[in-house]
Amino acid sequence: MKIHGTVHKYGNNVDTDVIIPARYLNTASHEELAKHCMEDIDADFVNKVKPNDIIVAQRNFGCGSSREHAPIAIKASGISCVIASSFARIFYRNSINTGLPILECDEAANDIKNGDNLEVDFDTGIINNLTTGKQYKAQPFPEFIQNIIKKGGLLNSIK
């Protein structure tokens, strides 16, 4: 599966509190959560994000709380994929479980700039930067994990 999108770029240690501040966790509604996605790191994010856009960040993306609301909010905001140098482990697992595609690729995460246009192929892990012409290779997920993501999350995939 391939996606095209524009990059929203962030740095190291983007924590789940800035992805979805706890003050909004009094609901599990995906639409409500999406309205406040990235609010405390990038207040304008919800106004500029377009369907299929891509978040690129550096080390330890999603650190902090175990709130599954974080990948849910990102996915519901329209983001099609998160690329980072590394992910915090609970966020990594939650992304798969909620069907948010993620890729670890240090070189891509360091090179790619805000506003770049990317083409990402989840089957091969190839990331093409259409703005610069540069190509990167991330480790794709094995087929069974890709299937969980395609079906929209773990429990959708086993029911």
Binding site: S65, S66, E68, I90, R93, N94, N97, T98, L154
Partner: peptide
């Protein structure tokens, strides 16, 4: 396992204890 990142607290008692998300908790 606990759907709260500070579930790792119980390691003080010699347990293996770790935080997960809500989906893992549901499963």
């Amino acid at each position: 396992i606990g759907a709260d990142s500070h579930t790792c607290t119980y390691g003080a008692l010699g347990a293996f204890s770790t935080g997960v998300g809500s989906t893992d908790m549901a499963a």
